[in-house]
Design a protein around this nucleic acid. Structure first.
Lengths: 361, 361
DNA sequence: GACGTCGTTGAGAACGTTCTCAATTCGACG
DNA sequence: CGTCGAATTGAGAACGTTCTCAACGACGTC
């Protein structure tokens, strides 16, 4: 009754409301709140008070229309249920929030078509930039297009040679080589590698897709390098790779364990594969590490809780995500330099899953 | 040279561009593309062709300003790195995308202040609705405010009695009771429960926070009910609860295992706690299930791969998320009925982690 | 006292849509 | 032949900001 009551109940207060309450124009109110231009201390205070009184919150949509910035990032990963990506995503959201950004999430299940669709959706939503763990190495036209159109892209965990984008990865080759060396040092000679690469091609053709992700390839190369160093020339005898959604790591491992001369150690290229390896070992009645040594990428929470505790190549998952955000944000906020490729260190954590090879078997 | 070239290189095509190309007004072009109002087949086709030629994509921000809809959902969970929430989030993003929505993600680490901040940020971003696993049961004013302001909220995994919002949960009481019954049936009488409830209060006061989440409480009640059924009146002897970020489940378990009459079975209220239990058991030199039977909520991928495989109460994690999205979307798109409380079934999966109590110890 | 400068202010355009409304056309019907 | 109604169309407002620009007054300097 006392004052003009029209806004308090209805929709949220807008800038004109604040301006009216403070007795200034929209322009001055906007300047006072956004803190640019020049506003007298008196006006600034009146606007501040009016905004607080009305519980004013600027409409980010309207702001975005003008500024062209949404302060939203898109994160495109293979599968949030994979502990590696869960950790990375956690790092992304935390770093993004600290930098004043929110994160829109999309999963691809390693499918390029899904990735393309996700990029489309996120660009429609006008994200300021994209953090992508690309599902393919060469099929990246949609990423290049986004980048060229002013929506910067940073690659996470995986490289894409043709793309002039920043990337944040780890030294997969070195880390894999180091891990296999540990197995060699323990006396193993028959060391297997189990991995999943690429997705099943549309036609049910040959083994792996022709365009697999760099990470897996580098780990395999590191494995081969370590074997060669040890004088083992036939590096692919115990190498088993399948494709996502088609092969099961447990089956690949089972096949290995049924060989006349089965491996005495297995190197899994990620934690999901390690679970398959463990499962297959259990089904074959083999004990880890007495009958079979096991090493894997990714220090998941279960790796240090189960019996035996698993030796792992620990990746700095959260930092991976955080660094990607930092690269992306600095790119969004105007830095134009040549693409930078950040490579973070991994750490080998020795636990109980490595033992000398079982001489009996 | 032939046609007027001004848009193709520069910024993306807008509706006026399409209208000009098709020789109609903005209004007609908009109608043709959005499919409302009435447009002649001829004009519709010309607009469609023009849009395709120019690669037109409607600016969602501008659209949102008018319609008040962003087709974006906010998901607020405790921690995406917890496999339960990872699964739920996966269900949310998949269902959301199928319904034409994107998902903005936020973590709270079970902290109400962080939750409040997240709600604020997400509402600033004008999400159409919120899916929240609330960090507290009664401190939900920010959620009530959002709901009242036309930003519908659906509760996930946890109830909040004072809040007139939809919820999607499981029958925690029944599931816990069932799990404990299985342990009783195996002959156990000294059955422990280990759980984490609420967050540490600002002052470093008493044991657990005064406002813990419903889920944990219900599981504890189910545990007590089962014990009472079996004639065990002293239901809290082996009950150990801590608070997030302060107590470590492994320590709580270690304490239990050091008791003069230690428990012969442990019920963990989630997978992260189960890891602590397993870890403590290993440190005490106890074998599962020979010396200690273990049961937990959440069927994580490691539970069925480790040795022994762990018996679990499996929650339909993805469906939990999907149902939350469906409730939320139908609420967003206009349904106004009384809050509905969806309760999904859990499934007890018997594996190798339960054995009769060890008579020796 | 004239002039330039600086600080402050408001009018108004812009962003790219959706949507209301009035105008126009055309066929049908009385 | 006049009129009603339906179908189609375009002009223009609206959404809530940011930002450019010109205007205005005060102040210092010559």
């Amino acid at each position: 009754m006392t004052t003009n009551r029209r806004k308090p109940a209805g929709r949220p207060a807008t800038l004109p409301d604040v301006a009216r309450e403070a007795g200034v124009s929209r322009s001055t109110a906007s300047r006072a709140l956004a803190g640019y231009g020049s506003v007298s201390p008196d006006a600034r205070e009146r606007v501040r008070a009016a905004a607080e009184k009305l519980g004013y919150r600027a409409n980010q949509l309207a702001r975005s229309m003008i500024t062209g910035r949404t302060h939203t990032l898109g994160a495109i990963v293979a599968d949030i249920q994979n502990p590696f990506f869960a950790g990375v995503t956690r790092g992304i959201t935390d770093a993004a929030r600290a930098a004043g950004y929110q994160v829109l999430l999309a999963n691809t299940d390693e499918d390029v078509a899904a990735e393309r669709a996700a990029v489309k959706m996120l660009r429609d939503k006008h994200v300021d930039g994209l953090i992508v763990a690309p599902a393919a190495t060469t099929e990246t036209a949609h990423l290049a297009a986004a980048h060229a159109a002013g929506c910067p892209v940073v690659l996470l965990d995986r490289q894409a040679p043709g793309l002039p984008a920043d990337s944040v990865t780890v030294d997969n080759h070195g880390a894999a080589q180091d891990a296999v060396r540990r197995l060699l040092a323990a006396g193993h000679r028959r060391i297997a590698l189990v991995s999943l690469l690429g997705t099943a091609p549309a036609d049910g053709a040959g083994a792996a897709s022709s365009d697999p992700v760099s990470t897996g390839l580098e780990r395999i190369e590191g494995y081969r390098t370590a074997l060669r160093e040890a004088g083992l020339t036939d590096t692919d005898t115990y190498l088993r790779t399948g494709t996502f959604h088609r092969e099961d790591p447990a089956d690949l491992t089972a096949e290995l364990l049924s060989l006349p001369e089965p491996p005495t150690a297995v190197f899994a290229t990620d934690s999901m594969i390690a679970l398959g390896v463990l499962s297959a070992a259990r089904d074959h009645g083999l004990r880890v590490p007495e009958h079979l040594s096991v090493v894997t990428f990714d220090d998941t929470d279960w790796a240090r809780a189960v019996r035996p505790r698993i030796s792992v190549v620990a990746q700095p998952v959260q930092e991976l995500g955080a660094r990607a955000v930092h690269s992306l944000v600095s790119r969004i906020e105007g830095t134009t330099h040549a693409p930078e490729h950040i490579v973070l260190d991994t750490e080998f954590i020795t636990r109980e899953s490595i033992a000398p090879p079982c001489t009996g078997a």
